[in-house]
Computed example of a mutant assay.
Amino acid sequence: MLTVEKLNQYYGESHTLWDLDMQAPEGQCTVLMGRNGVGKTTLLQCIMGLLPVRGGAIQYQGENLLQYDAERRANLGIGYVPQGRQIFPLLTVEENLLIGLPARRDKVRAIPPFIFELFPVLKEMLGRRGGDLSGGQQQQLAIGRALVLDPKLLILDEPTEGIQPNIVHEIGGIIRKLNQEIGLTVLLVEQKLPFARRVGDRFCILDRGRQVAEGAMATLDEGLVQRYLTV
């Protein structure tokens, strides 16, 4: 579904992504892994059109994503949950969810009921401001806001960061449900190895802006963990 080929990106004169290759096959959950600062978030921002790229290609369902701005990429069916959630703290839960509706291709302008089936707490707090929610509730809101788009590809940047353990477990179950039962393709950045093993079908490891290993999650062995993931 998503293919990144020979991608290069720079911050000023600093070369951050080096001829990077990555795939997120349709219907699978791919986990992007690596230590802090290796380029994981940068790669997601390039995919979403939030950062310019110097060279290479990003293909989504056979289309060249680089020809589209960030708004158009959302219209193509890519939902994005950024690191730190970035909900609108002064807007209500309902207003945060409604913001995503104009990007839907089917022109539906009502919040899909399944959002509240996945996240019952959001229905209970529709009138509460986003900034008044707990960290875990804000993460659920951020994921719900992305799902309102009716995406075919869901991209999440460290969805467990700063979240209490019970909500982490719940979010993991929701990701598996979306992937396995609904067929949503998922690409996520994750630091927690047990969580990655639980939700992921595949892994892709970055190191110093390069892809250094990828494959089925079952093949992520201790050697790779020690070499590229332990601090």
Rank of each mutant, 00 (worst) to 15 (best):
M1I: 05
L2V: 04
T3A: 13
K6A: 14
K6P: 00
Q9Y: 04
Y10Q: 00
Y11K: 01
G12P: 04
S14D: 05
T16K: 04
T16I: 15
L17W: 03
L17Q: 04
L20V: 10
D21W: 13
C29G: 04
T30E: 06
M33R: 09
M33T: 10
G34D: 12
G37Q: 08
G37S: 11
V38P: 11
K40D: 08
T41N: 02
I47Q: 01
I47G: 03
I58F: 06
Q59L: 13
G62T: 05
N64E: 14
L65T: 00
Y68E: 05
A70H: 03
A70E: 09
E71A: 14
R73V: 04
R73C: 10
R73D: 08
Y80W: 12
Y80S: 03
G84K: 00
I87F: 01
I87N: 00
T92A: 10
V93L: 13
E95Y: 12
L101A: 15
A103N: 11
A103T: 13
A103V: 14
R104V: 04
A110K: 13
F114M: 09
F116H: 10
E117H: 08
P120D: 11
E124I: 09
L126Q: 15
L126T: 12
G127V: 03
R128C: 08
G130L: 09
G131F: 00
L133R: 01
L141T: 12
A142C: 02
V148R: 01
V148P: 06
D150I: 00
L153F: 07
I155D: 07
L156E: 05
D157H: 02
E158A: 07
P159I: 06
G162P: 07
P165N: 08
I167L: 12
V168P: 04
G172P: 06
G172C: 10
I174D: 03
K177Y: 15
N179S: 14
I182C: 02
G183K: 06
G183L: 08
L184C: 12
L188I: 00
Q191H: 05
V199S: 05
D201F: 08
F203E: 03
F203A: 04
F203T: 02
L206I: 04
D207R: 01
V212A: 10
V212Q: 07
A213H: 05
A216L: 09
A218Q: 14
G223F: 07
G223N: 15
V225G: 09
V225T: 14
Y228I: 10
